[in-house]
Design a binder for these strands. Structure first.
Lengths: 195, 195
DNA sequence: TTCGTCATGTAATGGGTTACATGATTAC
DNA sequence: GTAATCATGTAACCCATTACATGACGAA
């Protein structure tokens, strides 16, 4: 029933970037790593096999690299990829799924990075999913911390606190964004239907 | 030449926890996951094989689980592990290595968690190693950001900024700790050699 | 007696990195 | 002409997760 298992994150990132503009692997990797900034990096060892697979699935194709008039013809070292129609469709489908894959640690960053191409309601559900995921974690860690209180040395405590504060900070960040999204949705509604 | 490749992080964490007190696997996993708080979790599927390996290497042994006087003898379902002499020695060695393994993303948290058992000079070198690692990353991401400026949509920008700020925050945290460590070292020196 | 949780383990799988191999293009 | 970097790819390995299988023990 379910389509494929494939390399979730990387797949989405590649399709998303190729949607913005066709590119070859080497360039793709750089854009990938700056796009995700501090979140993740990918090596060629995972990128090229992924491209190969997407190609085999017909989601991308080689785009003849723009054979400039005065360059020697039939030279080919760069392989520029672009999305096929099915690729675009598949990307849209991925960007519409607002499930755990979109808000768990591995996937959230990439999904967020392509929010500009994501429907407003889906954005909101992903943001809320992420927030409640983090809330859960905070609660369980706080509970564990309360049980262990005073039985850990100061370094361990410091580490746990720092971790806690990092997550709290992400939750505040999410709250800000969620607020903005809602305001925007509200405004869109009244614009659609004035008075 | 080199000893083993083994599961760096998990190995250190297990040895460290068992050093504090003997435990069985199930309990170990819970302690592990609260110790590392928001950093990481481990599943049984990695813990038990790790214990098996440490056992085979003679770094830990089964500790007869405290055969209480009035409990039925020769019952055994829990397997309590404790460090051997070689285990303690190996742990000390791990806690003295102030290399990349100690300050890269994967290892830093665990090393920090056991700082109470780490020599002051090693602590300082790890903290500084981590800090310069993060500085490098900040610089390269900022450079990439400057090159791409204005060519990314607001969501991507927001994500990159959040990531940047997270790392900057960790650097400030490190600076605080490094400051305290240095002050402490200074004080220890003057206490050793007053006037 | 049955249900939840404690407790131990393994096999299949997964997603990724490292190290390597290779060659084209550019700048000096 | 040679070094750096651009560019593509593969094979071996690594570390961990998932799903599963098993069973003891306490409480309802």
């Amino acid at each position: 029933m379910s389509a494929r298992k494939g390399a979730g994150v990387l797949e989405l990132a590649v399709l998303g970037l190729l949607h913005e503009s066709p590119m070859h692997g080497y360039e793709l990797r750089k854009r990938l790593n700056t796009l995700l900034g501090m979140l993740r990096t990918f090596s060629y060892g995972s990128l090229y096999p992924c491209l190969k697979q997407l190609l085999a699935e017909g989601l991308i194709i080689e785009d003849s690299p723009d054979e400039d008039v005065r360059t020697v013809p039939s030279r080919r070292s760069k392989i520029v990829y672009k999305l096929t129609a099915e690729g675009k469709e598949h990307l849209q489908k991925l960007l519409t799924e607002a499930g755990p894959a979109a808000w768990e640690d591995e996937g959230f960053g990439v999904h967020f990075a392509f929010f500009a191409h994501t429907r407003a309601d889906v954005r909101l559900r992903i943001l809320e999913g992420r927030r409640s995921r983090l809330d859960e974690r905070l609660e369980s860690v706080r509970a564990a911390l309360a049980r262990t209180r005073e039985r850990v040395d100061s370094y361990t405590l410091e580490l746990q606190n720092h971790g806690l504060e990092s997550v709290e900070r992400e939750v505040r960040w999410l709250n800000e964004i969620i607020g903005r999204e809602r305001a925007q949705a509200e405004q869109a509604k009244t614009t659609d239907n004035p008075r």
